[in-house]
Design a protein around this nucleic acid. Structure first.
Lengths: 229, 229
DNA sequence: CGAGTATTTGAACAACGTCAATCCTGGTGG
DNA sequence: CCACCAGGATTGACGTTGTTCAAATACTCG
């Protein structure tokens, strides 16, 4: 397998590595390894030894927690350029699974920690991202605990719409894009069941707020109505 | 007001400052300021400009988020030696309120950020704490979204019991301590209502798992039964 | 002792989950 | 090209949990 060059990396200037110059990057390059996961494959199981850290290059990963009796909750979604892994913890608290096909760049955890320690700028970037992730997680606690199913779904759809590069006819007109998650996965993210997600989507469609095309396609028809919820 | 000496600080070696030697500490000393909050006072409102960072010295703080229409969720509790504030964000996302009387040591945010940047060891400590806080927040997402009221309460009580220095007759016997929160505050933390919290406590008492004495006193009578839930 | 607040308890209700049946839809192979 | 198949999605009926509204009771601090 040919070594990949960081300089060609799709997320070179958005991932943590943006804090490194080309020379430093070369050093990392020898440590890192490209890794691909197919839809549904898991990079790491909760409870397992935490072996790797890295950057997500393409695709979406979910981070999930489970109760002893099998109830599951997605506690985070990772998008391209996001940092993956948990430095300084020898056991992982969460399971990391690919939602679609995924490409990432991984480093053995120990050596990666040493790189962090040697590169203050990179460590600071990670701190800032972690603080932001913490804010986001806390915001999601409000969502999970206090919003109604309808509110959760409306907010989630708006979030996806903003993140997607869906096509739209006019600046404020309808946006169309593909959901990167199944109904079941949306349920896991929002703390609901498949049926509730499906019902709420149907209701939003009936009210004209959205349009559904096939299992994955969606159009935000009336953004204001979603925002109201 | 007499300047306080860090060397006398109750959390000198557990807070972030543990990473500093006495000389560095002197420098911080001139920046920092003791601050007291009475029960219910708030240090910072969500949306407000984020002015201070600091360390909690004594008491408990709650971090909470609210919906536009006033529903509230506690997204974090801070205990002595915990770090308070959000460096590198000019607006606070969460409201910080004292649950009991509180003592903390605060620094203006800007200068504090500079101290962080100049003290790699301290910055690393903050990163490690932030990563841990993120794990905890994510764990609480599972609790909020998937556990029943009974499970939430049982878990919360065990948590408090472990944290409290309550007195116990024998090593594995019953522990008695005072709840640092009202029923209403527990409800805010667990994503429930006051009534549900009260009902579940009554039920646990009826089952002999706990004992309630007055509004605040509690005894963990049957730890195993709580852990089972 | 007494006012004000926190807590407990009850009854009716709504939202969401569960169980079960049916419907799509996209992919496969004849 | 079309029929079929499997997994995901939808819909319906019903049960449960937790909320809401309301009232009574217990604490705590003057």
């Amino acid at each position: 397998m040919t070594a990949q060059l960081c300089s060609d990396c799709a997320v070179r200037d958005r991932a943590l590595c943006a804090s490194l110059d080309d020379v430093e990057l070369d050093a990392l390059n020898t440590l890192g390894q490209k890794r691909r996961l197919a839809r549904g494959e898991t990079l790491q199981w909760a409870g397992e030894e935490s072996l790797v850290c890295g950057n997500l290059i393409s695709g979406v990963l979910k981070l999930s927690a489970t109760t002893p009796d099998g109830r599951e909750q997605v506690v985070g979604l990772l998008y391209p350029a996001d940092f993956v892994g948990r430095p300084w913890a020898d056991h992982a608290d969460f399971t990391i699974t690919a939602l679609g096909d995924v490409e990432l760049c991984v480093f053995p955890r120990g050596p990666f920690e040493r790189v962090l320690e040697d590169h203050v700028h990179m460590e600071r970037l990670l701190l800032q991202r972690t603080l932001a992730a913490l804010d986001e997680a806390r915001g999601r606690m409000l969502t999970l605990a206090r919003l109604s199913a309808r509110e959760k779904l409306a907010g989630f759809l708006l979030d996806l719409a903003d993140r997607s590069h869906g096509c739209r006819a006019t600046a404020f007109g309808p946006v169309t894009f593909d959901l990167p998650l199944t109904r079941g996965e949306m349920a896991e993210v929002l703390g609901l069941t498949i049926e509730t997600v499906s019902r709420q989507l149907s209701k939003l469609k009936a009210e004209g707020a959205i349009n559904l095309m096939g299992a994955r396609g969606i159009t935000i028809r009336d953004r204001a109505k979603l925002e109201a919820a």
